[in-house]
Design a binder for these strands. Structure first.
Lengths: 195, 195
DNA sequence: GTCTATAGACCGATAGAC
DNA sequence: GTCTATCGGTCTATAGAC
């Protein structure tokens, strides 16, 4: 068995090129929108040429997919953590989920909201099974076994409220800690949970 | 005094060309984002050539400004109406404002949310005095004299929730009346007001 | 106020050398 | 995996006729 650089080697990430591309793309999508971001801009951001980017992704649409999928991965990880947090204590699952989702949104203020509301990505994911599955899972975490069609709308609104508020001009001046505290408190009140 | 077509003649609007441009642009911005919308698309939407559009607005940036300003006009009018509605009865101002803002958002589902969250427009208006003034006014209408940093976060969440929900796939199937009713109920819960 | 025509830059995407 | 070079097409914006 060879000892050199392999796919499983943790010291050297398997695909630095691809993750550098999606990191740069995410930043630029958030700044200029998907439609306003060119492959040229992405390539320049990471210091290579367009052709090098095309070596990793065959089309711009594939890059958009990869960026959005990576963000979905983050949301799924956060839900995993929330479930682990509240393992066994059913009542705490909702509070843990709220705290984790708020953390994620505040930590990534600049990227999250624009990405979530971009019309290109919106159309791409409106009927995406994985996104709908993650939202369902969040819905069950928040309202427990009583989840139904109405609570799904409320969950969608809460997600929109949190992700939209972190970039809103009204809260532009707030530091992260203060914003986190307010968001969690208001979200819990919205869900009729004890603060 | 001549009796023909004048600027004040209500039968023939003074500048149909400009309003047709911003109407078309608003629709296309909402569908493809600002960066994904070209002057060619706007011109085709209203059945003229690019040059005709450039005769009205010298740059694309001017069109973006005009579209966003027109939307701000709408929000200001709605706040005017809400204040008139609740004149003298201080407690009703918030409920009137919620109802009016929800009406505006539902009536213009397709346009409002994307426009509000577009990164290009966001950066253009993040520090715009008029926008911040309108949002502060909304904040005071909603929470009265107790407005502070936390209520601003709540107001931001409410605006984001309403504008995000009206375009959300989970809500896309709802008819306008049902959506209005549900949004008002949820909004009042956000604000801790009696339904 | 609308048109045709065009300039010059940039777009997404590909070919082929190293 | 990165490069140079290039394709055909679209972009913003302008010039000038009607």
């Amino acid at each position: 068995m060879s000892r050199g650089r392999t796919l499983a080697d943790p010291a050297t990430p398997p695909r630095p090129a691809q993750s550098r591309i999606i990191d740069a793309a995410l930043e630029l999508f958030a700044e200029h929108g998907v439609g306003g971001t060119s492959l040229q801009m992405i390539a320049e951001e990471i210091g290579v040429t367009k052709a090098a980017v095309y070596h990793q992704y065959r089309t711009k649409a594939e890059i958009v997919r990869a960026v959005a999928d990576a963000e979905l991965d983050r949301l799924e990880s956060v839900l995993d953590e929330a479930e682990a947090d509240a393992a066994g204590r059913a009542g705490d699952a909702a509070a843990a989920a709220v705290a984790r989702v708020v953390d994620l949104a505040v930590e990534r203020r600049r990227q999250v909201s624009t990405l979530l509301n971009d019309p290109v990505i919106g159309r791409l994911y409106a009927r995406d099974a994985r996104l709908l599955g993650v939202l369902d899972r969040l819905d069950r975490l928040l309202v427990g076994p009583g989840a139904g069609p109405e609570s799904k709308v409320a969950t969608a609104m809460l997600v929109a409220a949190i992700s939209g508020a972190v970039m809103h001009p009204l809260v532009a001046g707030q530091d992260d800690d203060t914003l986190r505290t307010y968001l969690v408190r208001i979200a819990l009140r919205f869900l009729d949970l004890p603060a």
